[in-house]
Each structure stands twice: as structure tokens, then as C-alpha cells.
Lab assay of single mutants.
Amino acid sequence: TTVHLNGVTYTFPNPEEARKFVEKLAKTLNLKVEVHNGTYHIE
């Protein structure tokens, strides 16, 4: 599972880890999250 954040790409072997990371980040920084083909894009 891949996460794109400010031009940096993070790869998680575990989709659940990626989801938790994204949710925590989005909540902390009040960001918008979009998912395209299983890839998270955070703005």
C-alpha cells in the first residue's frame, strides 16, 4: 500500500498499517485524503 504525502512516497507492506497511518496523519494535520487505486494521496 502506497501513501503519497507532499511529494514523498511511503510504502507499507500491510494495508492496515497504511490506513492507520493515514487516518492518524489526516486527523492530526486536518488534511484531505483521497484514495486512487489503493494509493492514498494526502493533501
Rank of each mutant, 00 (worst) to 15 (best):
T1L: 07
T1E: 04
T1P: 06
T1D: 06
T1C: 08
T1K: 07
T1A: 10
T1Q: 07
T1G: 10
T1F: 06
T1Y: 06
T1W: 08
T2F: 12
T2P: 07
T2V: 13
T2W: 10
T2C: 13
T2G: 06
T2Y: 13
T2S: 11
T2H: 13
V3N: 00
V3Y: 01
V3M: 03
V3T: 01
V3K: 00
V3L: 05
V3R: 00
V3C: 04
V3Q: 00
H4A: 07
H4T: 09
H4F: 14
H4P: 01
H4N: 11
H4E: 08
H4L: 14
H4I: 15
H4W: 14
L5V: 14
L5Q: 02
L5P: 00
L5R: 02
L5Y: 15
L5W: 15
L5N: 02
L5F: 15
L5I: 13
L5D: 02
L5G: 01
L5H: 08
N6W: 14
N6P: 06
N6S: 08
N6A: 09
N6K: 07
G7V: 02
G7R: 06
G7I: 02
G7H: 08
G7S: 06
G7M: 05
G7P: 01
G7C: 09
G7F: 06
G7E: 05
V8T: 10
V8N: 08
V8K: 12
V8R: 12
V8H: 11
V8D: 06
V8S: 08
V8A: 09
V8P: 00
V8I: 11
V8G: 04
V8E: 07
T9C: 11
T9D: 06
T9H: 08
T9V: 15
T9A: 12
T9K: 13
T9P: 12
T9G: 06
T9S: 11
Y10T: 03
Y10Q: 02
Y10P: 00
Y10R: 04
Y10C: 07
Y10F: 12
Y10G: 00
Y10N: 01
Y10S: 01
T11C: 14
T11A: 09
T11D: 07
T11K: 12
T11S: 11
T11Q: 12
T11E: 11
T11F: 12
T11H: 13
F12D: 00
F12E: 00
F12N: 00
F12R: 00
F12V: 00
F12M: 01
F12T: 00
F12P: 00
F12H: 00
F12S: 00
F12L: 03
F12C: 11
F12Y: 03
P13L: 10
P13T: 11
P13V: 10
P13W: 08
P13Q: 10
P13D: 10
P13R: 11
P13G: 09
P13Y: 08
P13I: 10
N14S: 12
N14T: 11
N14G: 10
N14E: 05
N14H: 07
N14Y: 06
N14K: 05
N14I: 04
N14W: 04
N14C: 12
P15T: 09
P15N: 10
P15K: 09
P15D: 13
P15F: 11
P15V: 08
P15S: 11
P15M: 11
P15C: 09
P15A: 13
P15Y: 07
P15H: 13
E16K: 07
E16Y: 09
E16G: 07
E16N: 08
E16W: 09
E16I: 09
E16R: 07
E16V: 08
E17M: 13
E17K: 11
E17G: 09
E17T: 12
E17F: 08
E17Q: 11
E17W: 09
E17I: 11
E17D: 12
E17H: 09
E17C: 11
A18P: 00
A18F: 04
A18G: 03
A18C: 13
A18H: 01
A18W: 02
A18I: 03
A18R: 02
A18S: 03
R19G: 05
R19D: 05
R19I: 09
R19S: 06
R19F: 09
R19L: 12
R19M: 10
R19Q: 09
R19H: 07
R19K: 12
K20S: 10
K20H: 09
K20G: 05
K20E: 11
K20N: 08
K20Q: 11
K20W: 08
F21M: 03
F21N: 00
F21R: 00
F21T: 01
F21E: 01
F21G: 01
F21L: 03
F21H: 01
V22S: 02
V22F: 03
V22T: 02
V22G: 01
V22I: 13
V22K: 00
V22W: 02
V22D: 00
V22P: 00
E23A: 06
E23F: 05
E23P: 00
E23N: 05
E23W: 04
E23Q: 06
E23K: 05
K24S: 13
K24P: 02
K24L: 14
K24G: 11
K24A: 14
K24D: 15
K24M: 14
K24T: 14
K24N: 14
K24E: 15
L25Y: 04
L25G: 00
L25F: 04
L25S: 01
L25C: 06
L25V: 07
L25A: 04
L25P: 00
L25D: 00
L25R: 01
L25I: 10
A26T: 11
A26P: 03
A26F: 06
A26G: 09
A26L: 14
A26E: 11
A26R: 11
A26Q: 14
A26M: 14
A26C: 07
A26H: 08
K27C: 14
K27N: 14
K27I: 13
K27Y: 12
K27M: 15
K27T: 13
K27E: 15
T28S: 07
T28Q: 13
T28G: 08
T28W: 14
T28R: 13
T28K: 12
T28N: 12
T28C: 12
L29Y: 13
L29W: 09
L29T: 09
L29H: 15
L29D: 09
L29K: 04
L29E: 12
L29G: 14
L29C: 15
N30T: 06
N30P: 07
N30R: 03
N30G: 10
N30C: 10
N30S: 06
N30D: 09
N30A: 07
N30E: 08
N30H: 10
N30W: 05
N30M: 06
L31H: 03
L31G: 05
L31Y: 06
L31S: 03
L31T: 04
L31F: 07
L31P: 01
L31C: 10
L31K: 02
L31A: 09
L31D: 01
K32S: 06
K32I: 10
K32C: 07
K32V: 08
K32T: 08
K32W: 05
K32M: 05
K32R: 11
K32H: 08
K32G: 02
K32A: 04
V33P: 01
V33N: 01
V33G: 01
V33H: 01
V33S: 01
V33T: 02
V33C: 10
V33Q: 01
V33W: 13
V33F: 11
V33M: 04
E34V: 14
E34M: 11
E34R: 08
E34W: 14
E34L: 09
E34I: 14
E34C: 11
V35T: 04
V35Q: 05
V35R: 02
V35N: 05
V35Y: 15
V35W: 12
V35C: 10
V35I: 14
V35H: 05
V35D: 04
H36L: 13
H36F: 10
H36I: 15
H36Y: 10
H36A: 06
H36N: 07
H36D: 05
H36S: 06
H36V: 15
H36E: 05
H36T: 07
N37S: 04
N37I: 02
N37V: 02
N37M: 05
N37Q: 06
N37A: 04
G38W: 02
G38Y: 03
G38P: 02
G38Q: 04
G38V: 02
G38H: 05
G38E: 04
G38L: 03
G38T: 02
T39K: 06
T39N: 15
T39M: 12
T39Y: 06
T39A: 15
T39W: 05
T39R: 06
T39F: 05
T39G: 10
T39V: 15
Y40W: 14
Y40H: 03
Y40V: 07
Y40G: 03
Y40P: 03
Y40R: 00
Y40K: 01
Y40L: 09
H41V: 13
H41T: 08
H41C: 08
H41F: 15
H41S: 04
H41A: 03
H41Y: 15
H41P: 03
H41W: 15
H41N: 05
H41Q: 04
I42P: 03
I42E: 03
I42W: 02
I42C: 04
I42N: 02
I42M: 06
I42L: 15
I42Y: 04
I42K: 02
I42H: 02
E43W: 15
E43M: 14
E43G: 07
E43C: 13
E43K: 11
E43D: 07
